[in-house]
Amino acid sequence: MSKKRKHIHILDGMSLYTRDRSPFYWGYLNIGGKIFKKSLKTTDRKEAEKLLFAWKNEIFSNSMNLSDDQDHIEDHDHSKQEVIVDDKRRKALLITSGIMGAVTVAGFAVPFLSAWKPSEKAKALGASVKFDLSKLQPGAMAIVEWRRTPIFVVHQTQEAIDNLPKLNSKVTDQANDVLPSSNNKFTVLKGVCTHLSCAPKYHPEIEPKAWDQDWLGGFFCPCHGSKFDLAGRVYKGVPAPINLEIPPHTFSGNTLIIGESA
């Protein structure tokens, strides 16, 4: 027998209690929240366990199949227990703990989902680029890299600007007969063919070309023969479906800022 006082857990709601002052084991039963205890009048642990089970069975007054076989004792009759449940309180607790749990999960999701956003480094690399326009001669084109995309910057000649309306019948997007993306001198376009992302070539010269006898200058894509005029408008009957895209850009004096809209 143990010298210290201690509770010995047997099954849920069943335990034995011993202390050095008393030689006997005490049996404790918790049935539907009610505590029963009595001295089992034995000093033998195994005997005490048996008596505890027998006592429990007696309380449940269920004499069927309840020998020392522990497996059956677990199947005791719940309907006999008097269980008082405060449904209102239980519901309130469920709702509050549910909401708190959801808030916690959402809170923890924030850093994990935010980690997928462009990092500071990616943002720095994707930031706007500045380009000095003063050195770009009329008729010349510069290629500026922005977000790994070549950006075409064209300084239009007066002749080219005058020629644009003549092409209205040849391009898909007729309405757009002014330079779509400029301060009336400069055109800024993404140098990516809208067909399959090839790089169109800059052909500003006004002369008959293999691909067009009445060429008035523009962009020609060597991959699949898409044609665009100098304002980036797409010709009819070529594979590219839409005009060359215009990146967000703004002018500040003689400086072009690509990546910031006006």
């Binding site: 997928w116 956003k117 462009p118 990092s119 990616a122 690399l125 994707g126 977000r147 790994r148 995309t149």
Partner: peptide
């Protein structure tokens, strides 16, 4: 951009 983690498809 969120899926890519960058403004273009990259190492990220």
């Amino acid at each position: 951009v969120w899926i890519q983690g960058d403004f273009v498809l990259s190492g990220i």
